[in-house]
Simulated scan of single mutants.
Amino acid sequence: MKKLTSAFLLSMTLAAPVSAVTIEGVDMPDQMKADGSELVLNGAGVRSKWFIDLYVGGLYVSHVGSDPKAIVAADEPQAIRLHIISGMITSDKMTSATLEGFDASTDGNTAPIQAEIDEFMGVFKDEIKEGDVFDLVYLPGEGVKVSKNGNARDTISGIEFKKALFGIWLSDEPAQEDLKAAMLGKD
Rank of each mutant, 00 (worst) to 15 (best):
G43S: 06
K163H: 04
I23E: 04
A182L: 07
L170P: 05
D67F: 13
I117M: 08
A97H: 07
D172C: 00
W169V: 00
I84V: 03
E127H: 10
E116P: 04
G150V: 00
K33S: 12
P29V: 03
L139D: 07
N109Y: 08
G36D: 04
D53T: 07
I85Q: 05
D118Q: 14
E38D: 15
A152S: 10
A16M: 12
G57E: 04
S147L: 06
L99V: 11
F166T: 03
D178K: 14
T90Q: 05
H83Y: 13
T13A: 15
A104V: 05
Q114S: 14
E160S: 13
D135M: 03
D126P: 08
I84H: 07
V144P: 04
Q176A: 10
D27S: 15
T90P: 01
E116N: 15
G167E: 02
A7Y: 07
P77N: 11
K148N: 06
L184K: 01
A74C: 03
A34V: 00
E24Q: 12
K2W: 07
S86D: 02
F8Q: 12
I113H: 01
T155K: 13
K145T: 12
G185F: 09
L14N: 11
S6Y: 12
K3G: 08
K162A: 00
F102V: 02
S91H: 01
G87C: 07
R81K: 11
S62N: 12
L10W: 05
L9Q: 04
E116I: 13
G131M: 05
K163N: 03
S157T: 12
A34I: 00
G131P: 02
N109W: 05
G65F: 08
S11W: 06
L139T: 15
V146Q: 06
R153A: 11
I117K: 09
I159P: 05
S171T: 00
S147A: 11
D30M: 14
M12L: 15
T22D: 10
G158A: 07
A16L: 12
L4F: 15
R153L: 15
L14M: 11
V18S: 12
T95C: 05
R153Y: 13
A97M: 09
M28G: 06
K2V: 11
P174D: 02
E100D: 15
G36A: 12
N149C: 06
A7I: 13
T22F: 13
G167Q: 03
A16F: 11
A175P: 04
D35Y: 11
R81E: 08
F166L: 08
D107G: 07
V46F: 02
L14G: 10
